[in-house]
């Protein structure tokens, strides 16, 4: 067969894999909803979890789509479609593809022409991320068992343990927001953009909480995270125009 980065056979294979991924999510979702009903979780809670998760996902999913468009310039559409739907993240895929293209003496901007180059990039990207795919099925039960043990030994500490993990992650991202602020001393203020965006999002979140509590606007509570996310992202447009 004549190779092309957008050959139909590539889309067929990718389509099959993505269909399996989708099926897994649907099976897990149906099972969890069934179990939720069985142990008496309120139907409205289930419905709200589904709708607010779906709404929240829209903006990040569009940013993933932008990643597909970016990578498609050199790799065609099928491969980025798979890699950003399955495991990948834009930063990882860009680096992995870049490393493989480097080895081939190709630039990241130009489209791959030969099947040899394509399959080389594909192997590097695949073997690079395969660790998580193989070890999560093998280790998850053991790790969860360890968590249960901590929990059973001391319930209060078990709760602090998980909250500490969440806050450890959140604090890393708070630090990240400030990573370029010192540039301001040399007259470059664009390092302040993420700081202002984070503040806007935090204030919006707090306002949503207050409106939900004081004014009885329950939906404000359910959609507070997507609202603060989108308002924060929108605020980045004037902040960027102003500070860079």
């Amino acid at each position: 067969m004549e190779f092309h980065v957008n050959h139909w056979a590539l889309f067929l294979i990718v389509g099959i894999i993505i269909a399996v991924v989708l099926a897994q999510s649907v099976v897990f979702l149906m099972r969890a909803v069934k179990r939720a009903r069985a142990i008496g979780i309120d139907n409205t809670v289930i419905r709200k979890t589904i709708s607010s998760s779906a709404i929240f996902t829209i903006a990040p999913a569009i940013s993933i789509l932008i990643g597909v468009v970016t990578l498609s310039k050199s790799l065609g559409l099928a491969l980025p479609w798979l890699r950003l739907s399955v495991i990948g993240s834009l930063s990882y895929e860009t680096v992995a593809a870049g490393n493989a293209l480097n080895g081939l003496g190709l630039g990241t901007g130009e489209q791959i022409q030969s099947a040899t180059a394509f399959v080389t990039v594909l192997w590097v990207m695949t073997l690079g991320i395969i660790i998580g795919l193989i070890f999560v099925p093998l280790l998850t039960k053991r790790i969860q068992g360890g968590m249960k043990k901590i929990e059973n030994r001391d319930k209060k500490w078990g709760e602090i343990f998980t909250n500490s993990m969440f806050l450890g992650m959140i604090s890393a991202f708070i630090g990240y927001v400030f990573c370029d602020v010192t540039l301001a001393f040399s007259g470059d203020f664009k390092g302040l953009i993420p700081v202002f965006v984070m503040l806007v999002s935090a204030v919006v979140m707090a306002i949503c909480g207050l409106l939900a509590k004081k004014a009885g606007l329950r939906f404000m509570n359910d959609y507070a995270l997507p609202i603060s996310l989108v308002v924060g992202m929108a605020s980045a447009i004037p902040f960027t125009a102003w500070l860079s």
Binding site: P60, S63, A234, A241
Partner: peptide, 13 residues
């Protein structure tokens, strides 16, 4: 700029 600043907007809230 909006998509560049997705993470700060997400983690602020």
């Amino acid at each position: 700029p909006a998509f560049d600043q997705m993470l700060p907007a997400l983690f602020g809230g």
